[in-house]
Design a protein around this nucleic acid. Sequence first.
RNA 1: GGCCCCAUCGUCUAGCGGUUCAGGACAUCACUCUUUCAAGGUGAAGACAUGGGUUCGACUCCCAUUGGGGCCGCCA
Length: 516
Amino acid sequence: MSEVRVRIAPSPTGALHLGLVRTALYNWLFARQQGGRFILRIDDTDAQRNMSEVLQPILDGLRWLGLDWDEGPGVEGPNAPYFQSQRIDDHKAAVARLVASGHAYYDYATTEEIAAERLAAVANKEGVFRYSRRWMAETPADRVRFEAEGRKPVVRLKMPTTGALVIDDMVRGRVEFEWQREQDHVIQRADGTFLYHLASIVDDHAMGITHIIRAEEHLSNTPRQIFILQSLGVELPRFAHLPFVAEPGSRNKLSKRKIRVYMKNRDFSDLVARGNKVAATLNLETGPDTFSPVVVDFYRQTGFLPEAIVNYMALLGWALDDKTEHFTREDLVRAFSLERVNKSPASFDPGKLMAFEVRHMLALPVERRVELCLSFLKQAGLDAAPDKVAAIIAAAGDRIKVAGDVLDYVDFFTADDKLTRDAAAFAKEMGRPGTAVYLAKFRGVMASIVFEPAALEKSLQDFVAAEGIRGGQIIHVLRLAITGKTVGFGLYETMAILGRESVLARIDAALREAGI
RNA sequence: GGCCCCAUCGUCUAGCGGUUCAGGACAUCACUCUUUCAAGGUGAAGACAUGGGUUCGACUCCCAUUGGGGCCGCCA
């Protein structure tokens, strides 16, 4: 049994799309589990410009997710080069062999002539269009004759016209195609360049790929690739065609061009809102092509945990059993199998992704969470003390779902007299009879007590009892005074984190603001 | 239009002929707890697309229909 070798072969498009992430993940898991190699090849074309600009986000995204490749850009390996555009000698040799063995031919039809045949086929309701091979050059003499007419040749596959191809797909099982439905596909253009289906399968073979695990959209293209391999007299790899990652709440393929439609999904728009909040605080670029929940960079920039995304994406089309959901990367490597990959498309559910994010975040040691949050506070220009951040994280509980959420609490670090308050809520509370007096009085009490949650709670309760009021009459105004908000975590924890000095200063500022 | 693929709660799924009036998770709803917001606790609602077979028995096997998706390029 030879070593398992799998690959992903993205074309560089400037962003790492979730669909590619899922394909990459399944390839990676399969390779790691089988002790094989995971290869990254870039299916670029000569025409592509600004290579590093369009490639870098994909490389960065894969690395961030921990999907490290054993061969490919940046690590190289024995099958270099890992860019399709640099392997044209192989493609050229393959086409030459195909022509020599009679499995491909020079075709001198013009695009207009082909179009006319296709049109006629449609008019006759023939179903499949099959090229007549009228301008096929069968002998060198034909070539000379056609060229004398000023024609330029493409190279076409001479597809079989009888029989059927049976593919034993690792996720779909037996799939059958009749050869007569297949066309004489072009594999080399008139200008000498090669087409994707030729280049891709030739590269796969040259790189010793044993399992081609890719999206379902390639299933219909498999016969022509197998024909090429068979014609070359070469061993076939196994195929596994994965279902699509679909849109939220639908079976359509997830696309980065339909963000506006997805925004109708509440979980999706919540996700975007969360990202935008972080982006606004940090002045991040929020172009729809890069800062979108369909693209991995969005998650990195808003402070998601890569392990949460990996866990969630693994379950989008695969399940171990009826209850196991929480997986670490190691768990997945151990448990994954192509046999248990589902056949039907799985729609991306932003709400469930968030649930995995929270679970993984809570499972992290506090120091690690502090570290992550600290980096966001730093990006916001705050020189926060780790102790204080740790205290905030402890008090916040699962309110900090993604590391970027810590920016909701920048008020803990702003100057005491610079705090902005929810004016309407503050005015409403201060409007209640006696409130200002209670606030001022309790300020006096706090000047001399220990600033710990338990002690603070006791003194507030004593104060409430002594004054004969209900807790709510002082608690709400106090929260508004020291945080400026009506919502937040436990009041006593909040006060303890701020410390006596800040709390007193903020109450003073609040009283001043209220004109007292 | 031809071919290929797919079909269990809103979503992700378990189920590989009988132990399932279909189990779990996310979301939803109600109640509860409560100094706010979360969280927590308790509970509820919610699915085998349809029609034929096969079988003693079908969510599970077969066929058809319907619905969804994909591929049919001198795109990748």
